[in-house]
Simulated assay, not measured.
Amino acid sequence: MPSEKILEQKKAVVAELSDRLKNSVAGVIVNYKGITVAEDTKLRKELREAGVKYTVVKNTLLKRACEEVGLDGLTPVLEDTTAIATSAEDYVAAARILCGFAEKNKKFEVKSGYLDGEVIDMDKIIGLSKLPSREVLLANVLGAFQAPIASFARAVQAIVDKQEAPAEAAAE
């Protein structure tokens, strides 16, 4: 039987994981077995820069946290080595980075994920990974809004130019 101190530490870890799962919009669970320290360091740096929190966790502790927040659908994949990446704001960052990493490193495997408190299948995770970043999507939307306005401005300028040309010819 573990000591009270160890039990309290484990309860604290489960509580922190539960809170993290509740307060994130998306998360991805991976099997990181077989990657080098250099690859792991590079992956962690990329995730950190994207605002994604990535940690290695014990399966039993993550299982308890998932059960507490209603993500029971994640528990069947909690085997072997497990790490979880969660994002509090960006829906696609974790999936995009981890799926891209998994394509380059065949030993690295994306196991499962969730979105807005619902477990999603691998097809949805792959679909999320193919979406552009939030900044690119916003730029596309702004470009779509700007295009009609710019066309209208060019049309008005062409009308003004046509009216000025006869006036200048008459003045000469």
Rank of each mutant, 00 (worst) to 15 (best):
residue 63 K to L: 09
residue 55 T to M: 13
residue 47 L to P: 05
residue 57 V to D: 03
residue 55 T to Y: 09
residue 40 D to V: 02
residue 22 K to Q: 13
residue 64 R to L: 15
residue 39 E to N: 11
residue 22 K to E: 12
residue 26 A to L: 08
residue 34 G to S: 04
residue 55 T to A: 12
residue 27 G to F: 10
residue 44 R to L: 10
residue 34 G to L: 00
residue 30 V to K: 10
residue 23 N to T: 10
residue 44 R to W: 12
residue 63 K to W: 00
residue 57 V to L: 02
residue 52 V to D: 01
residue 63 K to M: 12
residue 26 A to D: 03
residue 65 A to E: 07
residue 59 N to Y: 11
residue 60 T to D: 07
residue 28 V to Y: 08
residue 26 A to S: 15
residue 23 N to P: 03
residue 45 K to Y: 15
residue 46 E to A: 15
residue 46 E to L: 11
residue 34 G to Y: 01
residue 60 T to W: 00
residue 65 A to S: 09
residue 52 V to N: 04
residue 60 T to Y: 05
residue 60 T to L: 10
residue 22 K to L: 11
residue 41 T to A: 15
residue 30 V to D: 04
residue 54 Y to P: 05
residue 31 N to Q: 12
residue 43 L to F: 05
residue 58 K to D: 01
residue 59 N to T: 11
residue 40 D to W: 02
residue 52 V to Y: 06
residue 22 K to S: 10
residue 58 K to F: 01
residue 27 G to S: 09
residue 45 K to I: 12
residue 44 R to F: 12
residue 42 K to Q: 14
residue 58 K to T: 04
residue 47 L to K: 09
residue 41 T to S: 15
residue 55 T to F: 07
residue 43 L to I: 10
residue 50 A to G: 03
residue 56 V to F: 04
residue 37 V to C: 00
residue 59 N to I: 11
residue 29 I to G: 07
residue 45 K to F: 15
residue 55 T to Q: 14
residue 36 T to Y: 06
residue 59 N to V: 11
residue 25 V to S: 08
residue 36 T to E: 02
residue 47 L to I: 09
residue 58 K to I: 02
residue 28 V to S: 04
residue 64 R to P: 02
residue 65 A to R: 09
residue 47 L to S: 04
residue 46 E to H: 06
residue 60 T to N: 13
residue 27 G to A: 07
residue 65 A to P: 08
residue 34 G to Q: 00
residue 46 E to W: 07
residue 35 I to T: 02
residue 39 E to H: 08
residue 57 V to E: 03
residue 51 G to E: 01
residue 30 V to R: 12
residue 43 L to T: 07
residue 62 L to F: 12
residue 55 T to C: 00
residue 51 G to Q: 04
residue 61 L to F: 02
residue 24 S to Q: 07
residue 64 R to F: 12
residue 51 G to D: 00
residue 34 G to C: 03
residue 29 I to Q: 09
residue 36 T to A: 07
residue 54 Y to V: 07
residue 24 S to Y: 07
residue 22 K to Y: 00
residue 52 V to E: 02
residue 37 V to E: 01
residue 35 I to W: 01
residue 30 V to E: 06
residue 49 E to K: 14
residue 44 R to G: 07
residue 60 T to M: 06
residue 46 E to V: 12
residue 62 L to H: 05
residue 26 A to E: 11
residue 24 S to D: 01
residue 47 L to F: 05
residue 27 G to C: 10
residue 65 A to C: 10
residue 51 G to W: 02
residue 41 T to Q: 13
residue 42 K to G: 04
residue 63 K to N: 13
residue 52 V to R: 04
residue 45 K to Q: 14
residue 34 G to T: 01
residue 32 Y to P: 00
residue 41 T to D: 12
residue 43 L to W: 05
residue 48 R to L: 11
residue 62 L to M: 14
residue 46 E to C: 06
residue 53 K to M: 12
residue 40 D to N: 15
residue 53 K to F: 15
residue 48 R to G: 08
residue 39 E to Q: 15
residue 50 A to R: 11
residue 47 L to T: 08
residue 27 G to I: 07
residue 52 V to F: 07
residue 28 V to N: 02
residue 45 K to N: 14
residue 61 L to G: 01
residue 61 L to S: 03
residue 56 V to P: 05
residue 50 A to L: 04
